[in-house]
Simulated assay, not measured.
Amino acid sequence: MAHPQELDTLSKSFSGFGVDERSIVTILGKWQPEHRKTFRKCSTTFFREDERLFEKWDADHIALLKREFSRFKNAVVLWTMHPWERDTRLAKEALIKENRSYDVLIEIACTRSSEELLGARKAYHSLFDHSIEEDVASHIHGTNRNLFVALVSAYRYEGSKVNDEVAKSEAKILCNAVKNAKKKNPIEDEEVIRIVSTRSKLHLKAIYKHYKDNCSKTLDEDLEYGSSLKEAIMCLCSPQAYFSKVLNASMKNGADEKTKVALTRVVVTRADHNIKEIEEEYQTQNGVSLSQKIKETIHGNYKDFLLSLIERGERK
């Protein structure tokens, strides 16, 4: 008969975020048929007994385990890709998946440098024989379409010069557009789209600062929660705060699969860039370090790989 502690360890290894491969190998590798039978009998979370008293894996849990086993593999594959190909494949998947995740497009369009975004657009041509702009325009409908096409088409100025008077003027334009949101959605305003999709990130930060002078509240406070416009401005003006929020949501109990996969995506894509700033922001927002949260939440090789990428980013 299997030892109760081994049963408990194995149950934990099969549960949660990622799987504890080491414990699975150590325990299952030595178990005899009677041990495995005991595990099936005792693990009603994983197994269902049919009318013939046959213990079979629960189908939903098989699907869950396949996803959890694949997280490490997916992280490794993404990490070894050229960054342009990585962004291209993430964007394509976001557009064609049944449960589309347009926040991925916002991340790529708004947190990459102009050269990185241009490189991803070139890679999209090579991989899919048409442009990302075409796919965005054909897959995204309604009020979001013009904003998304403009964002993925951008090639922003990245110098240090900011015209403060123009920034003040454009802060007023945004303020008026948000005030009139009941009459016209700001995301449908051509001037709003022009400002958000063409201005440099430093210029947009100046607009963000002046916005409060005109509207009493910050732009974050005034924009509708979860709107594409709000997410885009957050990515452009405060990417570390945006990514910290996404990471925290991905590790919450009960997070759905769409939310969970962001953990791999953010750590892998930001490890060579601003992971240190994201970590600092995460600590400020949540009172615990990102590394510690991953240690508490994630299992196995997947956990170790994510931690190695974060530590690598810290040494830069």
Rank of each mutant, 00 (worst) to 15 (best):
Y225P: 06
D220M: 14
C237W: 02
K212S: 12
Q240I: 01
D220S: 14
Y225I: 12
Y225C: 11
Y211H: 09
K209Y: 08
E221M: 04
S238L: 03
I207T: 11
I233D: 00
L236E: 00
L219T: 09
I207A: 09
P239T: 00
D220A: 08
I233Q: 00
E231V: 11
N214L: 12
E231C: 12
C215T: 02
G226T: 00
T218G: 06
S216W: 06
I207Y: 10
E224I: 13
T218K: 11
H210C: 06
L223W: 05
M234C: 13
D222E: 13
L229Y: 09
K209L: 14
G226I: 05
P239D: 01
E224G: 04
K217R: 11
S227N: 06
Y211N: 10
E231I: 15
K217G: 10
E224R: 07
Y208N: 15
T218H: 11
E221K: 09
I233E: 00
E221P: 04
E231P: 00
C237Y: 03
H210Q: 08
L236A: 02
G226Q: 08
C215R: 05
P239L: 03
E231M: 15
Y211A: 04
P239V: 02
L236K: 01
C235D: 01
C235R: 05
H210F: 09
C215W: 08
